[in-house]
Design a protein around this nucleic acid. Sequence first.
RNA 1: UGCGGUGUGGCCAAGUUGGUUCUAAGGCAUCCGUCUGAUACACGGAAGAUCACUGGUUCGAGUCCAGUCAUCGCAACCA
Length: 1137
Amino acid sequence: MATPKKVETKKKVSTKKTSQATTARKRRWSAYKTYKKLDLVQMDKELLAFWKKNKVFEKSVEERPKSKSFVFYEGPPSANGKPGIHHVMARTVKDTFCRYRTMKGMRVERKAGWDTHGLPIELTVEKELGITKEDIGKKISVDDYNKQCRKTVMRFTDLWNDVTTKMGYWVDLKNPYITYENNYIESVWNILQRLYKKGLLYKGYTIQPYSPAAGTGLSSHELNQPGCYKDVKDTTVVGQFKIKREEHSEFLFARENEDVRFLAWTTTPWTLPSNMALAVGKKITYVKVDTYNPYTFERVSVVLAEDLLGKWFKESNLDGDFEAFETSEKKDRSKIPHQVVEKFKGNLLVGVNYEQLLPYVKPEGDAFRVILGDFVTTSDGTGIVHIAPTFGADDKRVGEQNGIKGLTVEDENGNPTPLVDKQGKFVKEAGELAGKYVKNYKDDANYENIDVEIAVKLKTENKAFNVQKYEHNYPHCWRTDKPVLYYPLDSWFIKATAAKKRMVELNKTIQWKPAHTGEKRFGNWLENLNDWNLSRSRYWGIPLPIWRNEEGTKEICIGSIEELKKEVAFANKKLGMKQSVPKDLHRPYIDDVVLCSKDGEKLTRELDLIDVWFDSGSMPYAQWHYPFENKDKFKRNFPADFIAEGVDQTRGWFYTLHAIATMAFDSVAYKAVVSNGLVLDKDARKMSKRWGNAADPFKTIDKYGADATRWYMLSNAQPWDNLRFNEEYLDETRRKFFGTLYNTYSFFALYANIDKFNYSEKEVPLRQRPEIDKWIISLLNSLVKEVDADYADYEPTNAARKIQTFVMDNLSNWYVRLCRRRFWKGEMSKDKLAAYQTLYTCLDTVAKLMAPIAPFYADRLYQDLNKVTGKEKHISVHLAFIPKVNEKVIDKDLEQRMDYAQRISSLVLSLRKKENLRVRQPLQRVLLPILDKSFQKQVEAVKDLILSEVNVKEFEYITDTSGVVNKSIKPNFKTLGRRLGKNMKAVSQKVAGFGQEEITAIESKGGYTLDLDGEKIDLSLEDFVITSADIPGWSVANDGSLTVALDISLTESLKAEGMARELVNRIQNLRKSKDFNVTDRIKVSIEHHEMLEKAISEFGDYVKTEVLADSIELSNSIKGDKVDLDGVMLTFDVRKN
RNA sequence: UGCGGUGUGGCCAAGUUGGUUCUAAGGCAUCCGUCUGAUACACGGAAGAUCACUGGUUCGAGUCCAGUCAUCGCAACCA
């Protein structure tokens, strides 16, 4: 395609041959590479090979000075899963800015990384081995289990490396950091020790999500796996808690033997045996209601929040007939009367004691009284909350504040344990409930719902006021799909709350893209920080480097292998052992290491592992094995200038990086962060394997090429907006942007090859180049300036769109189109040289500007250009530099007048269209009303361009517009608005009423004094906006302030010329269809028709020149091709002469 | 439920500090044409939007404020 068809057909002189012939003469000339078609996929392959062979990536780092580093951190993906299209998105963002900085002369060292620990890997292994958590250490040794994990986790690394390479993401894959390696672990230990030394580590007993089915605690991250929160229907119970009649509670009793009870609602009846207290709200109003229990029909007075009365009692039964109900034989549950007898604030209830609801186990210490809870609301339940400190975080906290412990029994080892054990079943002390599971954890077909059982029991014992099914959202274990329990577990915490203030401060110095993610989402998260639960009771992860004695009174936190060695030696000496530091720091080996306190007490390792998020948050240090190695490198590379990941990392990696850096180094970990949005399918649904709508990154890249994929992703939506991924647009990107750019290059290459242009000539000074060259160079420099700024500000979308507009609209569709003739006509001249140099500069610059986003095609383009000219020594665009803007050549006036030219042309073409006058038909003149001098000057400079573009003979400016042009006037709101304020409306109405005379008067006087209800207002010419709206009797078009009229009258001569052009067109078509060579001379005979006579007589020579005809004649007897000319079929005889 | 984002023609989307030059860019798709020595994945034109809704501030609101709705994401022990 790049070479004309004729050139490719045999037997004919081809430009290729010509160029080869010349090559022989000019030895150093080599042709610009031309292509049959644009094949981005093929280009990908070639460039990948080229980059690899020439170590371009390595050079792009090493060629930049160490002193100018731009630091980027790669968030480690887990190689346990396959890469998806959203990874391509995230990595495009990362790659773009790294490449950009490289091209700004900076050294961007970027180490790949792998996140290798964590639950997903363990679960994959368990699934594949067909084992459960409980089997570890029994059916399979921890050692073998971990070996399996290590093997499993890197299984998709090939796929990841492949996608990384194919999409053109440059990152050092050869030396990645891997979180399971000893060096990495050692660094993590070191960081942890720093925190330990600052007193930021503590062990605490807290309520955590726990999966009995999986036998393990769950992190909040795990709880937030998609689909974990499910709507479930649970049996809920409103319990009746019998109040003890005491001095303190006397106010609640009126009658003798009155049965007064608290009502408290729960969705987890199985926690009722563990009830220890009831919580009320301080300011909530409670009422005592006299009524009957709906199950036992016993008379009872119940206490609940006033606001929730309507939820549990029928309005119609208020103050119903107690006596009638009492005496009726058949008690109708729906007719139970009730009466509000007492009203009081919650704080009055505090301290009231009640009887234990389900007395299986007697508690130690204080219990069964009313306390205050700040979390109590009246949006649900009864306004009184059942408190079971062993099974709720709030419960535990509020219990502790009031000196009420959780209900526990001693297990076989004498340790306190809740009434439900870690398998999720009731302990033996729980009476008839003993041994029963609280949920169906074992998939037992005969499982009986324990909640129902409890509810039934309570009903019969007059302890339930209401039992019903209730649908609510409850978390489930993502692995086992079973409901989670909130369960007390021993854990190590990082006191993140202590560093909260500093974290907030430091966060304010970070440049977030978009800003709201940092200010709001991340900011709010920091404001509501909790301590960081570090503990994971698992096997495959970094072991907690803390050794303790049994009582927990003595402990050592290890910060290096060296230190561990010393401690081991010390312990060996003290305890007479022969231990050594294991080669692998993972469990189980490390568990065997026993250390020793100074006074000779045995210390064993805390069995927990460290949360994997701590692993990844430590990567700035651990990736370099800091502080044990690479101290300089670390210094150069901390903190990061830039990181980027998906928004989902806000509370993940973005947080852990920030938290660790703040606490350990009192520094930010990154100065700028781009959080990109989700990649959705074209219907805005989340991509997931389940829907089958997930785009395969490999297929996408293989089909459209990496550049089109990357360009589409960044140009279509800003990275932080969700992207609706739609293949159609990918194809459009390829066709429109890359296709146009490719065509532009092909055009250049075609003629440059013919003319042997290799930029060896001296640069034609810009002032000697024609207007249009100055214009495109001006635009080009404006583009450089803006795109550079956009990249620097992490605004890739703006950059891409600007480049795209430049290439498609300005370079291809205007510059090249208008300049075509300059390239093909005649021998090399200064003008032609200027055209080549200008176009070359544009292409070369575009290649550099687009290189960060579209690294493949940009490099192809750059290389194809530079190989011939040798203008730059770099072998790849990625070793080159973003061009410096030349402010001097930016000419906004020029840009404006070309804009006029484009718009005026467009208006004329639109008029032609309206009047049905094809462009081939020349017209005499265009009328242009001139409203100010500078406008005329501007237009005059581009007059010829417009005329040739729209095929019109002359311009006529209407300067004295009075009487010719109908003008319209309106006030200039911008200048007047502030001045006139409220009067604006009245003025605007007056101005709207102005006729042509007034407008003319204003123009000639240069102002106007307006009378507004007696108030004189002086207005200058600037206070009006005058436009020419219409020219009576002419065909007129408007575009903003531009008005153009077209003289559509056709003289005979114009018609004839139009016909001549039609003839040229038809004859050229025939030449083409007959496969004549461009240089063949021809002779033409045309069937006689009177409409041709004048065309031939007046413009015959023109036609002959255009079509290379030696003769052209009209004749009546012609055999040849039938051709349609203005609706008449005529015979043409065109033959070689 | 709370927090945050988004809501502009069939689709993708521009739209700074409010200004009748936003009488709302551009692209895709649609329709109608055109050029043709870049033979095209080209060019031109047309049609298509009460800027989610309601109210407010203002002389003036796509733009600012409040509320509502829709949608997406995040968070959550909610009893």
